[in-house]
């Protein structure tokens, strides 16, 4: 069963999770996505909820229905790369916002970040 927060719509969390897996390459371009029923049983969620998440991922263009193979991850690598960049930006903005909340300004943040990146093995 997937770890999902009960206080946010489940379908949104599934969309975020699968989107991350596509961006990170856990699901490669052109890979088949398991059936709604398989995924629903793995996640421990309702098939209708999983269906709704799939519809949303299709709407975003990240996955597409394939004639014989069910649903597959988009072959449009450029688009995946674009989403990857977008998500990274979002996370950086979130980080900056939180640092500002702690009272750090830009000049302080950069050296700290550089240090952490260097220390990170």
């Amino acid at each position: 069963m997937w770890k999902l927060d009960a206080d946010r719509p489940i379908y949104m969390q599934i969309v975020e999770r699968i989107e991350k897996q596509i961006i990170s390459g856990a699901y490669g371009s052109g890979d088949r996505i398991p059936s709604v029923r398989e995924l629903a049983a793995q996640a421990g969620v309702n098939p209708n909820t999983m269906q709704r998440a799939m519809t949303e991922l299709e709407r975003k263009g990240l996955i597409a229905g394939h004639r014989t193979r069910g649903r597959v991850v988009t072959e449009d690598r450029e688009m995946i790369e674009e989403r990857r960049g977008y998500m990274a930006k979002e996370m950086i903005r979130e980080f900056l916002w939180q640092m500002r909340e702690l009272g750090f300004d830009k000049e302080e943040i950069l050296p700290l970040l550089r240090q952490e990146v260097t220390d990170d093995v």
Partner: peptide
Amino acid sequence: INEYANEPGQNQ
């Protein structure tokens, strides 16, 4: 998930 992704079969 990867294990499942490699399985053949049709989506419902």
